[in-house]
Design a protein around this nucleic acid. Structure first.
Length: 499
RNA sequence: GCCGCAUUCGUCUAGAGGCCUAGGACACCGCCCUCUCAAGGCGGAGAUCACCGGUUCGAAUCCGGUAUGCGGUACCA
């Protein structure tokens, strides 16, 4: 049988970095071995699950390019795959049947303990320095006793009998793991009093029903795996293989969390990280090719991926490295592609009022040679060249005066530069045509070219760090360059008056 | 507390008994390039391979213990 793997997110929050990586590893495995990648929504936590989160997760996975072979119906699109539905709240009858089966075979039993009773048990165990576990008060209730509770109007939960013994399994990444059933905390609840099933139960029923062969998931489920194995056996199903992935960590090495790190994929998208970089980075967080290759596309990753090489230790999420990879991938984007991906970020600048007009695609294309290698993220576009799309520039008078110069020199230099530039015709307004005369001017004035250029740069852009000056002048256009130089001169004059 | 898992430069990692005076990358520092900023090139600093014992002619690699960290221990997933 070919491998069947799945990603089973819970729509209780936006797509999380950790979920994205788990999805990626499952996807890479499926594609590498020619297996099937299934998406299943685990929405049994009705209190926290929302359709908005569900959409967010699906959109995020699509954005990353992780397309599934089998999954739920979404927005009119019918469900794909032979085991629909793929949304747990639509599979309630399946769980009810499985629960009925366990109950009939006495592998599970109704428990009528109240929250108060359970809380008291827990407290007593704590006081006695015992590990918390269900004491089994309802484990041996007779049929009559059960009826009596029901008659009192009590609604029981369903508990699974864990029995005793050692549960062992060979985890693909961790090797052999053995856990004594005695440490599982006693018979655990598989169906709530309101009849809805719990995670440990649904995950097993579904993995069995969907014929999942390899469960590739986060390490936080490692300790729960014996419960799953017991359930698979009780239900009479084959136990799948397990591969527990190392956790992604906060800088303090605790499990990555919203409190301490940015965990939503959305946020990275909004900042201008591109999917190629995110996929590449996530793939290498906890796995490596074993070679020194590190810039890898999704296809190249598929080609090289092997779950058996996944690491055991957790990995700290390093944003700096992600940014570096992002820059690498931005530089590899074809021009049209870059423009398409950049446009929303320029639009966002416009919407935020940081620029005043939307540049055309031609304008953006002309800029590409000087900005492509200067963008660590797409969101940096406004910061880099936003000065091109505003009418009035705020210029700090102090910045107009290069370090080695005084105000008078700056005034003189800028005035001379204005004349020189004014003398260059519109048709000749190209980088190659601008540089020689301005260098000549610096020489005549006895200035260092760098100082003159810096004064001009600040005058026309308002910044000390910009793309190359002459390309920048061309992008601004002759008239705007002259206007801004005039304004800068006026600013310098005003400063002089006020001192 | 109990159970489980983990531990190589600050970070991501290479490493499957001799090729390791531990390699690469990010970040950091310096130099080159250069009109600034990037990008790129070159170089540097940075790891007693958590610790202690053992096995072996030889251990980052095998075994045992200790420590530390993390995860699990819900009518969350």
């Amino acid at each position: 049988m070919t491998d069947r793997v799945r990603i089973a997110p819970s729509p209780t929050g936006p797509l999380h970095i950790g979920t994205a990586r788990t999805a990626l590893y499952n996807y890479l495995h499926a594609r590498h071995v020619g297996g099937t990648f299934i998406l299943r929504l685990e929405d049994t936590d009705q209190v926290r699950s929302t359709v908005e989160f569900e959409k967010d997760i699906l959109d995020g996975l699509h954005w990353l390019g992780l397309d599934w072979d089998e999954g739920p119906e979404v927005a009119g699109e019918p469900a794909r795959g032979p085991h629909a539905p793929y949304r747990q709240m639509e599979r309630l009858p399946t769980y009810a049947a499985a629960a009925q089966q366990l109950l009939a075979e006495d592998l599970a039993y109704p428990c009528y303990c109240t929250p108060e009773e359970l809380e008291a048990d827990r407290r007593a165990q704590e006081a006695a320095k015992q590990p918390p576990r269900y004491v089994g008060r309802c484990a041996k209730l007779t049929i009559d006793e059960r009826r009596a509770r029901e008659a009192e109007g009590r609604r029981g939960v369903l508990r699974f009998r864990v029995g005793e013994g050692i549960v062992a399994f060979d985890d693909i990444v961790r090797g052999r793991v053995e856990i004594d059933v005695a440490n599982l905390g006693g018979d655990f609840v598989i169906v709530r009093a309101d009849g809805t099933p719990l995670y440990h139960f649904t995950v097993v029923v579904d993995d069995a029903a969907m014929e999942v062969t390899d469960v590739i998931r986060g390490e936080d489920h490692l300790s729960n795996t014996p419960k799953h194995i017991l359930l698979f056996r009780a239900l009479g199903h084959a136990v799948p293989r397990f591969a527990h992935l190392p956790l992604i960590l906060n800088p303090d090495r605790t499990k990555m969390s919203k409190r301490k790190s940015q965990t939503a994929i959305d946020d990275y998208i909004a900042q201008g990280f591109i999917k190629e970089a995110l996929v590449n980075y996530l793939a290498l967080l906890g796995w490596s090719t074993g070679t020194e290759e590190e810039i890898l596309s999704l296809d190249e990753l598929v080609d090289r991926f092997d779950v058996r090489n996944v690491h055991k230790g957790g990995a700290v999420f390093d944003r700096e490295r992600l940014e570096w990879l992002n820059g690498q991938w931005i530089r590899r984007l074809p021009p049209d592609e870059l423009i398409d991906r950049m446009r929303p970020f320029v639009e966002a600048e416009l919407a935020a009022g940081r620029i005043e007009r939307m540049p055309s695609d031609e304008e953006l294309r002309a800029l590409l040679p000087v900005i492509q290698e200067r963008l660590p993220t797409l969101g940096a576009i406004g910061d880099l060249v936003g000065f091109l799309w505003v009418t009035d520039l705020d210029v700090d008078p102090a910045a107009l005066v290069p370090k080695r110069w005084d105000a008078a020199t700056a005034r003189e230099g800028l005035a001379a530069a204005r004349d020189t530039i004014a003398g260059i015709g519109d048709v000749s307004f190209e980088a190659d045509e601008l540089e020689p005369p301005l260098r000549g001017l610096a020489e005549e004035g006895g200035w260092k070219a760098g100082d003159l250029f810096m004064a001009i740069r600040v005058a026309v852009t308002g910044r000390t760090a910009t793309p190359p000056l002459f390309d920048t002048l061309v992008a601004l256009g002759r008239q705007r360059v002259l206007d801004r130089l005039d304004r800068a001169l006026a600013v310098l004059d005003r400063e002089e008056d006020s001192t």
